[in-house]
Design a protein around this nucleic acid. Sequence first.
DNA 1: AGGTTGTAATCAAAGCTTTGATTAATTGGT
DNA 2: ACCAATTAATCAAAGCTTTGATTACAACCT
Lengths: 179, 179
Amino acid sequence: MSNEQPEPEHLHFWSFIDHAIERTSRELPGIDPLAMRLVLTLHRAANMLVYDLESTVHRPRGWSWPGFRVLFVIWLSAPVEARKVAELSGMSRAAVSALVNTLERDGLVSKERAPYDGRAVQLRLTDAGLEAITSAFRSHNEREQEWAGSLSAEEQKTLIDLLAKLTAHSTHFDARHRA
Amino acid sequence: MSNEQPEPEHLHFWSFIDHAIERTSRELPGIDPLAMRLVLTLHRAANMLVYDLESTVHRPRGWSWPGFRVLFVIWLSAPVEARKVAELSGMSRAAVSALVNTLERDGLVSKERAPYDGRAVQLRLTDAGLEAITSAFRSHNEREQEWAGSLSAEEQKTLIDLLAKLTAHSTHFDARHRA
DNA sequence: AGGTTGTAATCAAAGCTTTGATTAATTGGT
DNA sequence: ACCAATTAATCAAAGCTTTGATTACAACCT
């Protein structure tokens, strides 16, 4: 395995996946290049999407993508326990706890002890939080439409079905998940 | 918009996307539910994949997914400037700078000033870094095969093509990207 | 009632990421 | 030769995330 390829100038963002697959499957036996391309492509697509939505929709409003996700879940299920927000959003409980602190500091979320269980905390949106999430959500969905518009409705459905199948089957080989 | 739905106990990870789409498209006119489902499904699939790979392959070896990504890029393009690593991996230059510091501290990467440009830094793997990345990459690809195995080869190709189309077309509506 | 076990939330330490500012070196125009 | 504009890397501050430990409360069992 040589580290002395002298021409990384010829590598670019769009060609790197091809290069990586060519190089690794040539040099390492037993690699599955299709699985590798699937994971690299999926990760890159999600990253680009998140970066674009965060920088065009959320940061200009003064908040983050994780903050949006938490507000979104609380909006659709309030009053809701912090534990549930973690489950629904796919975050850890500690991450939700930290995030809710900043959202509470910014006046978007209110927190109070559950009357039926002294351990649990119930979360709700404040009026400002409700105003913020509905406005941001519209803008967010407009941007989602820009992205989805790359594909026909049929293609979008196919993509959704394949992704759903991928995640559904992850339960068949004991994929690790949070909590 | 009522926040007083009293039964978030009936919401669960797998049904939340359906609930969110039903609720938002009922209450907010002009929302595109298909675009929304596409983005939610894509984000969730990528998150689950990353979480599983990181917790089964990388953390047990004592490193992180971002560390793996940087080692991977350096492996396939060394000697390479930090700026190029940022471009190829889709990270910011500052993130690469910070990450390379920890990889250097851990003895996996070496850093030296480029002879032809006093600003640039050239990165290479150390022997330990090369050993680490080849071993981790095999294990990583085995896990990728578990995930990809949920789909037939034809389905995998279709999924890759649709994701590639999505990202390729992102250039047509001035999607924001790093650097 | 008392004690064990389990669960919700939070804390602590470490790491990654972001934006914006700073430093240093190169390039290009005059 | 000189000065302005770029460019590479890094720094600084703030925020998010992770794992593992801690605190507080609840449930169960005898």
